[in-house]
């Protein structure tokens, strides 16, 4: 009994710790106060301000477009890479797998400055090119890691059977291999989106000077003392919290139901 109470207490305490900052921001996004802690009555004014704020809307668009572009490119290169590695001899596969671990293990700041050195060397420092490549360096290895296990689970005979039945290698690849590893590709893509949306450090070192994502904009707002509590930003945070929580819950509840149905 005591054990059970302690267990529940721990769970509750951690949940309070995790969610209290988020809840605080969400609650205070519905009042027209300049600082948090002073309730000025219920109002949607911050949201109205937010949607009229052209600068923030543009930055939101930047962030989403960057994430989509980086995720699509990473998924293509990473999926092809995983298939290639899977069918290569160990002599080729082992070093590629090893190098794939570097961006995953490495401190982000080291990845960021290494890219800064490279791109200033080839005179492409702080361009859209360096920014997209930077995000791809973060994402692509995770795509490879998501796709690889699906390739291992695949029945190798099916591909051979397709060839025997007259399919060309590329038809067999697109009609047989890709469908079997598709769930891995999707999770690699989703992971890339979240990694790109979450990033600050690599973005800060590779972005064009006038370009901002939500991360760099909010960090700079805190740095320049305009403070995070710039009221419209509070509404933006609250909105992102709510949307992300809803999305993650929806995806997982659906996945959970599918699993139960399969039983």
């Amino acid at each position: 009994m005591v054990k059970k109470i302690l267990s529940v207490a721990l769970c509750v305490a951690v949940l309070v710790f995790i969610y209290s900052p988020i809840l605080l921001l969400v609650v205070y996004s519905f009042t027209d106060a300049n600082v948090i802690g002073k309730w000025e009555g219920f109002s949607f004014k911050l949201y109205a301000d937010l949607f009229q704020n052209r600068e923030i809307m543009r930055i939101l668009l930047n962030t989403v477009v960057l994430a989509l572009v980086a995720a699509v490119l990473s998924t293509v290169i990473g999926t092809a890479g995983a298939i290639g590695i899977f069918y290569s001899k160990k002599k080729v596969a082992a070093p590629l797998k090893g190098i794939s671990q570097i961006p995953i293990i490495n401190a982000e700041i080291v990845t960021a400055i290494s890219l800064a050195l490279l791109f200033s060397f080839i005179s492409l420092y702080r361009t859209y090119f360096s920014l997209i490549v930077g995000h791809m360096v973060l994402c692509t290895p995770f795509v490879v890691l998501s796709v690889m296990p699906k390739l291992k689970q695949m029945d190798p005979n099916v591909y051979e059977a397709a060839l025997d039945l007259g399919a060309s290698p590329s038809t067999a690849l697109f009609k047989v291999v890709i469908p079997q590893i598709f769930s891995g590709i999707v999770s690699g893509f989703m992971l890339s989106i979240t990694l790109s949306l979450d990033d600050y450090i690599v973005t800060a070192f590779t972005k064009p000077r006038t370009f901002d994502t939500i991360s760099t904009y909010v960090y700079n707002a805190v740095k320049n003392g305009t403070n995070s509590s710039t009221p419209a930003l509070r509404a933006l945070s609250a909105l992102i919290f709510i949307v992300m929580i809803a999305a993650v819950l929806a995806v997982n509840l659906r996945a959970g139901k599918k699993k139960e149905g399969a039983k």
């Binding site: 290169i77 990473g78 890479g81 290639g84 590695i85 069918y87 080729v92 690849l173």
Partner: peptide
């Protein structure tokens, strides 16, 4: 199929 890892 092996050559698919070249771009990566």
């Amino acid at each position: 199929r092996k050559q698919l890892c070249i771009p990566y």
